[in-house]
Amino acid sequence: MTDARNLPRPTQNIHEYLAEFDDIPGTRVYTAARARKGYHINQFAMSLMKAENRERFKADEKAYLDEWDISDEGKAALLARDYNKLLDLGGNVYFLAKLFSTDGLSFAEAVSTMTEYTFPEYREMMLRGGRSPEGNRSIKANRAAAGAADSKGAH
């Protein structure tokens, strides 16, 4: 943990604040830009809170999606349940969770589809203490470490 007392205090520059988010491996922070981009995907997902909408969606997914102002790319990702793609398009997991439950998937099972693991493997990883933060904190730091290892290997 960084020594909190040495950190800059009051107002942060929004550009610097946001730029740091892109340095986290395998993570799409739900920023204002993503919230704007994914607005209709998330509001579509929210509509599945109502039983009658779930029924209509299940009866004809494509027709239901056509009622929403969502790009073809977004509709294709929703039909394919490509959740990493949906995060890129501004989807947020708490909204997408309405689609998980429409599909009868547990949160953990749906989450596992975004990782390199099958659901049983994912569950096993969680039981063993979860994914380690080691090597998962910073893309730049990982690159620097890989670079250092490469140059070591060259000599």
Binding site: R5, T27, R28, V93, F107, T115, G130
Partner: peptide, 28 residues
């Protein structure tokens, strides 16, 4: 972490340091 390829991340060490910080007589 409930999203993306890094989903499933847990950090026992950091969490416990955070609990220690809440117990402390300061607002760090």
């Amino acid at each position: 972490q409930l999203q993306g390829p890094r989903a499933g991340l847990l950090n026992r060490e950091w969490d416990n340091k955070f609990l220690d910080m809440l117990e402390a007589d300061n607002d760090d």
